[in-house]
Amino acid sequence: MKRLFKQTAILSVAVMGFFFLSPIEKALAAQDNNYENTIKTIAHRGSSGHAPENTIAAYDLGFEQKADYIEIDVQMTKDDKLVSIHDTTVNRTTDGTGSVGDYTLEELRNLDAGSWYDESFAGEKIPTFEEILDRYRGKIGILIELKSPGLYPGVEQKVADALIERNMHKPNNNKIIVQSFNHDSVKRFHSILPSMPVGVLVGYGQAENGEITDEHLEGYAAYADYVNPNKSLLDHDTVDRIHQHGLKTWPYTIVDQEWVDRLMGYGVDGIITDYPELMDFR
């Protein structure tokens, strides 16, 4: 009887201890030691809080900060080359003007993609998709966003071809995920490489009155592996429902500790952030 009482008391203390844990500690306590079950850190456009987005400088820093993935944006040039840049124009992040699709690769590579952020990054170039794959393959995961794919017919096949050429299309060997706000584009990519994981980005325009519904999730689950929404579209219930549909969720874009704590308390699977150091407690 004394032994039973002692075991019950120990269990009660453990339960009470868990009750008083912070949201981060609760989330971590619920994780296995298995890598696949740990909360992932995704460096948004690289470590873009500290270096010019979508440049090698930002990606290198994300790697140095031990992010699990770098997130990159992929578009296509006038001569059908794949490059990494977020906006459909070069105005904001280079010293040029005009649409990405109106430039050849050589013309884009002549632009300065670093000085807008800080003069210490002067001379940074817009990287090609292939350059990124070759530099980081096997070192860090790559979350590939097909940016405005409606402007670039055939971009899904070209991305798939670059991955196949490098034998990076096998999901068990490479941490590569393809996502887009354009869900038809995600479906096209999935039809080309059905074994590769894909995700749907979800903004307010894809939600229904600010909610990701079960009907949405049933549709996504037919082809996708991830639902990656605006952080404000998530709560405990939505994360639970995402998981019930067999999907994972990596919300975007987190820039402060308060949101990290909140989202980890919800039980998300990863966090897309401009500041990977926010996840240093892992």
Rank of each mutant, 00 (worst) to 15 (best):
residue 107 E to N: 02
residue 264 M to I: 03
residue 31 Q to W: 08
residue 201 L to W: 03
residue 178 V to G: 13
residue 17 G to R: 04
residue 64 E to Q: 15
residue 38 T to C: 10
residue 55 T to S: 12
residue 58 A to W: 04
residue 153 P to A: 09
residue 171 P to H: 12
residue 184 D to V: 02
residue 233 L to D: 07
residue 11 L to N: 12
residue 6 K to A: 14
residue 148 S to M: 05
residue 3 R to F: 05
residue 103 Y to L: 10
residue 108 L to M: 04
residue 155 V to S: 01
residue 182 N to P: 11
residue 78 K to S: 04
residue 203 G to T: 14
residue 96 G to V: 00
residue 270 G to C: 03
residue 38 T to Y: 05
residue 28 L to R: 12
residue 171 P to C: 12
residue 242 I to C: 02
residue 28 L to Y: 13
residue 166 R to F: 15
residue 91 N to F: 09
residue 239 V to E: 13
residue 200 V to E: 03
residue 45 R to W: 02
residue 155 V to R: 00
residue 156 E to P: 01
residue 72 I to P: 03
residue 118 D to W: 12
residue 195 S to A: 12
residue 4 L to T: 09
residue 30 A to S: 14
residue 9 A to M: 14
residue 203 G to E: 01
residue 63 F to L: 15
residue 28 L to I: 12
residue 207 A to D: 08
residue 273 T to H: 00
residue 19 F to G: 09
residue 230 N to R: 07
residue 279 M to C: 11
residue 264 M to W: 03
residue 124 E to Q: 08
residue 118 D to E: 14
residue 162 A to L: 14
residue 259 W to F: 13
residue 131 E to R: 02
residue 59 Y to A: 05
residue 158 K to H: 12
residue 212 I to N: 11
residue 149 P to L: 13
residue 234 L to C: 05
residue 252 Y to N: 03
residue 80 D to P: 06
residue 99 S to W: 13
residue 116 W to Q: 02
residue 58 A to T: 07
residue 230 N to Q: 13
residue 33 N to I: 02
residue 246 G to K: 00
residue 223 Y to P: 07
residue 134 D to F: 06
residue 106 E to I: 05
residue 204 Y to S: 14
residue 241 R to W: 03
residue 115 S to Y: 04
residue 241 R to M: 05
residue 278 L to H: 10
residue 267 G to N: 01
residue 213 T to I: 00
residue 130 E to R: 13
residue 22 S to Y: 04
residue 70 I to A: 00
residue 168 M to C: 11
residue 148 S to A: 11
residue 30 A to G: 09
residue 195 S to V: 03
residue 205 G to P: 07
residue 3 R to A: 11
residue 275 Y to P: 03
residue 132 I to S: 00
residue 259 W to I: 11
residue 146 L to W: 02
residue 22 S to V: 10
residue 14 A to P: 06
residue 124 E to P: 00
residue 205 G to S: 08
residue 65 Q to F: 15
residue 166 R to M: 15
residue 231 K to H: 15
residue 268 V to M: 06
residue 271 I to Q: 00
residue 176 I to F: 00
residue 207 A to I: 15
residue 257 Q to M: 15
residue 43 A to C: 08
residue 199 G to D: 05
residue 113 A to K: 00
residue 195 S to C: 02
residue 260 V to F: 08
residue 133 L to R: 08
residue 185 S to W: 09
residue 43 A to G: 05
